[in-house]
Design a protein around this nucleic acid. Structure first.
Lengths: 334, 334
DNA sequence: TCCGTTCGTGCAACCGGTTGCATCCCGATA
DNA sequence: TATCGGGATGCAACCGGTTGCACGAACGGA
């Protein structure tokens, strides 16, 4: 039994060539003759040889890894299945490009983590989701000149990649659906008012109403913070002010579930008295009572795009923006 | 302005010492005089110096990273919030020990990934969850002699760390609660029958019935595969066979949500006709209809323990097992 | 005063790849 | 046949840390 093969020097000895030739052959360099290259690759494969990542990263001065950054966990807030879906897409997108995925939970107040990861050579770039990062994080990354891509960022962003749902269409589809089922007074319960996505969903809501020749009533538009508790409060306040409300477009499923709960608590039937459309199509949406009609976004696809565009930025400096389609999933709540 | 400080050689120059002294000082080696060490650390801090991770990993022949391994994503199956909670705990536990967290999605059929990560020096150990890995994966890891820790594995496992919920107590608490609210005929809907956790929950169920002097009826015990669809099927079959069923302990919330749905579909009220207790306390449990009474396990805690025990194994070879408490969360479904 | 410790530090090799440059061999051209 | 060009390969330096060992100084004891 031959000794274990652990380094390119071992392969070099076996093949009767030099380290450099092995290195080039394994990296598919055109400098190496086709015949030699194939022979070396065959030997490497036979011994199931793996390049040593730290050594390669040291030489190349890059880590071949990307950090997926989220807040330190808070119960009920980021436990969103959508994050998992996106992460899964990120993971496979990165794997296809030969990058590893690092998951980092940072403190919302801390802005130094990016420099740490970059300067220590542990990550070449970052992926964030707007829902779990602050504007300060984004500013810090831009100041560093760090490559990153962001879910939910503005489409024409400067200096970084963004992937986002087509929130305008989402808002329009949701509202059109409520109109189509005959709702007369349709409320809008948004997430944080300052978020661009929320603004676009609102624009979609507005557009659908306008297209149907309905008035836009400012009193029917309220905002929350994505927490179920506040969503429930908002819907109760709204109900008191506007008792003849008969439909509501809620900006997230987690809020929508709480809203349906609150509506029931107030004696309204869903969807008979008040129809509810959510957003995100979280796993729980299909088991809620009633199953939630919602807007679905393809999380894994979003993740793939985040990964691909980030890798492109790392390699070529090119930044890009993408919008993925929003789709209406009709269940029973509207 | 001095040139940028990027390597220990720069620090060495600034401090008027050698590279080795800097390296030792920054690693807190007792070989270096306290005074020198502090001076060097001060200089490093002043320049916000970061050691280069690949170089260090290359020298030390370890990666200071751990891979959290899950299946390639499948909609609705692993989208469990519990996984996210555990991961969050793993992340902070590893961060405390100076390890990075790598997330790897593997193909269920592939058993070679561990060797790849180990031999390429990208990970020093692995963390898996039984729900998202196969027995083959575990066998492959053991055959490799790779350090790993497993959520949901057998407590006295050989060769690896395990962290698990106290499933016996969980099963007992759930069943006792159903008994306490007056249920007479309590069914058990398990996950995969072969899983140890499922067996323990069943044992807890059994023990609670025995303690109450109730008979154990084999016809009330059925198993699913954690999918909502099969759970719904099982409960309908059960209902047909045992129409006077008035309580059911379901092995996961996702199944429990589907079960409640199916029960309603069959015209039974929850909890009035049939009381339901779930397991896991997923985020959706509190917004379901009715809100689900369930067994909660502290995911972040589990994650921390997985991380800590794995790091201990990597450093010292010691393997350990932990069980975290199960807690009953009473809502409205039972 | 001389020697053996002990303590603190530096030297240089090493970890396992990558890569600029020199070298060599070959056929093609003059 | 001598020369030139270019493709294929090897040499050796380098990436930025870590660490075994040697070395020098200060100290205590005999």
């Amino acid at each position: 039994m031959a000794d274990a093969v652990h380094t390119i020097a071992d392969i070099a000895r076996l093949a009767g060539v030099s380290k450099s030739t092995v290195s080039r052959a394994l990296n598919g360099s055109p400098l190496i003759g086709a015949e030699t290259r194939e022979r070396i690759q065959a030997i490497a494969a036979e011994h199931r040889f793996q390049l040593n990542a730290p050594a390669r990263n040291l030489s190349r001065k890059q880590s071949n890894a990307v950090a997926f950054v989220t807040y330190a966990y808070k119960k009920g807030l980021v436990a969103d299945g959508f994050l998992l879906e996106v992460m899964s897409g990120v993971s496979s997108g990165l794997a296809d490009e030969g990058y590893d995925l690092l998951v980092v939970h940072v403190d919302p107040e801390d802005t130094d983590w990016a420099r740490l990861y970059l300067e220590s050579g542990r990550a070449d770039g970052f992926i964030l989701m707007q829902a779990t990062c602050t504007e300060r994080h984004i500013q810090a990354l831009r100041a560093l000149g760090a490559p990153f891509s962001l879910w939910g960022g503005p489409p024409g962003a400067h200096g970084y990649c963004s992937v986002t749902g087509d929130s305008f269409t989402g808002g329009r589809l949701a509202t059109e659906h409520l109109l189509a089922r005959g709702c007369e007074r349709i409320a809008f319960l948004g997430g944080f008012e300052v978020e661009r996505e929320v603004g676009e969903r609102y624009a979609g809501y507005q557009a659908a109403l306008a297209a149907a020749g309905r008035p836009l009533e400012a009193g029917l538009v309220v905002y929350g913070d994505y927490s179920p508790a506040l969503a429930a409060t908002r819907i109760r306040e709204l109900l008191e002010r506007e008792p003849d409300l008969d439909g509501v477009f809620v900006n997230s499923d987690v809020m929508a579930l709480a809203v349906m709960d609150a509506l029931r608590g107030e004696g309204r039937r869903v969807p008979d008295d008040v129809a509810v459309v959510g957003y995100d199509d979280v796993a729980a949406a299909q088991y809620s009572n009633p199953p939630l009609t919602t807007i679905s976004q393809n999380g894994p696809l979003a993740g793939r795009l985040l990964a691909q565009s980030l890798v492109q930025t790392i390699r070529t400096g090119v930044v890009s923006s993408h919008a993925i389609p929003a789709e209406l999933v009709v269940r029973s709540s509207a």
